[in-house]
Amino acid sequence: MQMKIKLTVAAAVAALCGVAAAQQVVKIGHVAPLSGPQAHYGKDNENGVRMAIEELNAQGVTIGGQKVKFEIQAEDDAADPKQGTAAAQKLCDSKVAGVVGHLNSGTTIPASKIYNDCGIPHVTGAATNPALTKPGYNTTYRIIANDNALGAALALHAADKLKLKKVAIIDDRTAYGQGVAEVFKKTAQSKGMQILDEQFTTAQATDFMAILTAIKAKNPEAIFFGGMDPQAGPMLRQMEQLGLSNVKYFGGDGICTNEIIKLSAGAKTLENVICAEGGASLDKMPGGKAWKEKYDKKYPGQFQVYSPYTYDATFVLVDAMKRANSTDPKKYIPELKKANYKGVTATIAFEPNGELKNSATTLYTYKGGKKAPL
């Protein structure tokens, strides 16, 4: 009898060991600024990936006959290109199955070569510079509209809807800021708008009085800023101090956040902001409203812009793995190319160069201290 019990226990232990051995751990990398002035974007992006991974693990996904447990490997690039390439190399060395990121075009573009060289696919839901997909790597994918769409939409709105004639441009000299400003400028000029002045700053600056004073002397009807909200917030405050309260303020998705409301600290000029985001507004996304309720319960007060895209990007990678019946990038990249995934943000399918097919753009403004789609 005692022998029988021992055998039964041994069999149970062996069975449990077998179950443990059959479960495969699959790492998904995520990179964004988790420190520095852009950390609020990075945290929001990471939250989107974490939420997706928790839901995938709750589903009990099986790939290649094995139960899979997904884990996030989160890296901080501090919005710095050098740190971004180091983070990309670390993820390659860790043999992650795929990467969601990065946030900034200036970090994503150099990192994309590293991912290509080590054969790991990455999907960005935030980096918008069109140069990202120019090399044609089969490892690079974007699930948001690029700057060609964002910069052009803003310039067309300024010219056609608001009938503006005179605009000044400021950019922060990053790949993102320069890129979106250049597209705005070309489109504005093609519509007969006059570029009164072009000024430059950095992604670390907080004092814009000198460049705004120079611009004020030329009487612009609008200012376009190519950059992010840590600069846009103080700039709006300083515009008010200089009496530029009637000047429209245009920018891409980098300024189109909830954080800019805090960073502009009650400046009336916030009401003059018109910004563009890739994709539909949350209310018009296929699953946006329900998704946002879930997100706010889990991460109250942390939503910025891109977390629905990083959430979808995680599912897009796993969907390709499931269809390929493999977590090996070599085997599932061909399936990633053929994606047709019904996500929260849109139905995600890719052009041959990795750009999103049929990408939408939405313009926003700020009314009564709240962000609202135009």
Rank of each mutant, 00 (worst) to 15 (best):
A205D: 15
A280I: 06
A158S: 12
K289I: 10
A360Y: 05
H122T: 06
A145C: 12
D77Q: 10
N129W: 03
Q83M: 15
I274H: 12
Q304C: 01
A22G: 09
T108R: 08
A12F: 11
C118R: 07
A10S: 14
L212H: 06
Y311P: 00
G192D: 12
G287M: 13
A58L: 06
G226R: 03
D44Y: 00
D253Y: 05
G278S: 01
T133W: 08
F303K: 02
D253R: 09
L156C: 06
P110W: 08
E75I: 03
I211T: 10
A217H: 06
G29E: 04
D93G: 03
G136M: 00
K67N: 09
V344E: 05
M239I: 10
A210S: 15
E54V: 02
A15T: 10
V31T: 15
A168P: 02
A203D: 15
K298H: 10
W291Q: 00
D117W: 04
I144F: 05
A205K: 09
G151R: 09
M321K: 06
L7S: 10
N272V: 04
D312Y: 01
G226F: 13
A280L: 14
H102Y: 11
A175F: 05
G119K: 00
L282F: 11
G288R: 03
E351N: 14
I63L: 04
K163M: 05
G279R: 00
H122C: 09
E259A: 15
H40P: 10
L16T: 08
D172W: 03
A210L: 12
M285V: 09
Q178H: 14
N246V: 10
A88Q: 05
N116A: 15
K163A: 10
L132C: 03
A32T: 12
P220A: 06
V247N: 10
T327A: 13
D296M: 03
G226N: 02
E355H: 08
V13Y: 14
